[in-house]
Computed example of a mutant assay.
Amino acid sequence: MSKYSISEFLKQTEQVDKDQGLFELETQRMLEVNLDGQVWAKAGSMISYNGKIKFEREGMFEHGLSKTFKKAFTGEGTSLMKATGRGKLYLADQGKKVTVLDLRNEVIHVNGNDLLAFEPSINWDIKLMKRIAGMMAGGLFNVRCEGTGMVAITSHYEPLTLRVTPGNPVITDPNATVAWSGGLQPEFQTDITLKTFFGRGSGESIQMKFAGDGFVVVQPFEEVYYHSK
């Protein structure tokens, strides 16, 4: 049989149940949700589904509103959708690598553009990085996820996790920062001496400084966001 036959293609690419639970990594860049109830996902991330599933896109929230559950979040137009029903739901985001985290009464902060899906048992809240509003075009929002349940995040290529220990802070580029542990509160700083190395419109390099005890996840890619016109 030819290795390029249709039957061989099906053998290599056909969906296979792995019995991993609610979230399954069908491939490194595709998340399968074995839905029986409800899940939150990034709006526009659905690529296929079967069964009876209803999708609801939530409206924009007011920036001054502060409560645990908000109907949507925005980071240059990014928002959440709620999928309700029973069936198989397949999610992906621009071919980015998907990582599933099983939180056990833990907290993680995720860049608003890198949150793909999470269980309804997760408490989430929007955090606006007000200090850099106007200083850079994107990365202004992150989502604080807390509780017990599955959270799926995305990254361009393989993520790298850096340990942060007392006395040894970690400095990152905001556009390459994917997530960080709940106990860390990043500070923003600028480095004018680096302006010749970065094509920033502001002429400065904006950095995130993580100090304390925890970890920060970065990707080998600068994700640039644009304000919708």
Rank of each mutant, 00 (worst) to 15 (best):
K195M: 03
R104A: 10
N142V: 05
Q207E: 10
Y225D: 09
V107G: 00
D17H: 03
V16S: 09
E14Q: 12
L115E: 01
K209R: 15
S205M: 10
G212E: 12
I171A: 02
A211P: 09
E146W: 05
G87E: 02
W124Y: 15
V16E: 12
Y4R: 14
V164Y: 10
K130Q: 08
A83Q: 04
Q20F: 00
M30L: 15
V217K: 01
F61T: 13
K130N: 05
I53D: 13
D102G: 00
G139V: 06
T27I: 04
K54P: 04
Q219N: 07
G199W: 00
R104E: 15
E106D: 14
T99Q: 00
S48E: 05
H227S: 14
G138R: 06
G199S: 07
V151L: 12
A117I: 01
K229W: 01
Q94K: 12
K88F: 03
N111G: 11
D213W: 05
I171H: 02
K18G: 00
G112H: 07
N111C: 02
G44S: 14
M208V: 09
V164E: 14
M46G: 04
L65K: 11
G183V: 06
N175W: 01
T78H: 08
E158K: 11
S155T: 06
W180R: 07
G212M: 15
P159R: 08
K209E: 10
F55S: 12
N142M: 05
P169Y: 13
M1S: 07
A179R: 00
H156Y: 07
K71E: 08
Y49A: 14
L80Q: 08
E158M: 10
D93E: 12
R57I: 13
L101K: 04
K42M: 15
A137P: 03
